[in-house]
Amino acid sequence: MKNIFLSAVVATATMVSCSTVSSILQNTFPYTATVLVTSGSPANTTLSAVSPSQSINQLTGSGANVKDIRISNATLSVGSNTSVGMFKSVKVYLSTNGNNEVLVASREDIPDNVGNSLSLDVSSSQTLDNMMKSGSVQQRLVYVLKQSPTSDISVKTSVGFSSVPVN
């Protein structure tokens, strides 16, 4: 009888802990995308680059278990030999296959000596549930350069999402 009771307690504890871990993973999840700024890209001109994205289903494996998905933070980074100060401004848009585009993060008037990473101003006013669960999300980076780069530059955006579990 003791073994059955002990087994039941262990099984219950395991199920609760797995549920808790799953809930934590689904409440905050990252998304990263990389685009290439090619050498010779013109300065003082609005340019854009599109990168395929991931849906919450690809990120967590169970998108049906979360709701109220919003942007919580966003950063832009470049290689260690480059500065984010090469940009005048950046805007990060997410969309469903190029439709229903939503501005999720941006930064204007970027200083010259910023380093190779910069936190962006996020737009967390609307939920992105339908978009992130669609499975066909893409990111578009819109930017203006201060000067034309002499070599190709890989630009990485990291966007953090917050959500709440579906009860």
Rank of each mutant, 00 (worst) to 15 (best):
T75E: 12
A64S: 14
A43L: 05
S83R: 10
L25D: 08
S83T: 15
T60N: 12
I71Y: 05
V37D: 08
P52Y: 11
S83D: 10
N27H: 07
N65W: 02
T28R: 11
I71F: 08
Y93K: 13
G61P: 01
V35D: 01
K88Y: 01
V50L: 11
V21N: 14
Y93N: 09
Q58C: 08
N81V: 00
S53E: 08
A43E: 12
N65M: 12
V50H: 06
S41L: 04
N73F: 13
V78A: 02
I24V: 13
N81C: 03
Q54R: 13
T38M: 10
D68Y: 11
S55P: 01
I69Y: 08
G61I: 07
K67I: 03
N73L: 02
G79P: 11
V35W: 00
L59T: 09
T34G: 02
S62P: 01
S48Q: 15
V35K: 06
G79S: 14
V37S: 11
R70Q: 11
L76I: 13
G63C: 09
T32P: 02
Q26T: 05
P30H: 04
V78N: 07
Y31V: 01
A49Q: 14
K88F: 00
G85H: 08
S62Q: 07
V21T: 12
N57F: 02
I71L: 03
R70D: 04
R70V: 04
T82L: 04
V78M: 08
I56V: 12
S23H: 07
R70N: 09
A64G: 08
V92P: 01
S80H: 12
N27Y: 06
P30R: 06
L47D: 08
K67P: 00
S51A: 15
T46E: 15
Y31M: 14
V66R: 07
Y93R: 11
V37Q: 06
S48F: 13
N73M: 04
N81Y: 09
N57Y: 05
T82Q: 15
A49N: 05
V50E: 06
Q58K: 07
T34F: 00
S55K: 00
S22G: 14
N27I: 03
S22Y: 11
I24N: 04
S48A: 10
T32N: 13
G85M: 01
S22P: 02
S39A: 14
S23V: 10
V37L: 10
K91T: 04
T45G: 02
Q26A: 08
L76D: 04
T82G: 01
N44G: 08
S39K: 15
Q58W: 01
V84Y: 05
K91I: 00
I69G: 07
L47M: 13
G85R: 06
R70K: 15
L59K: 13
S22L: 09
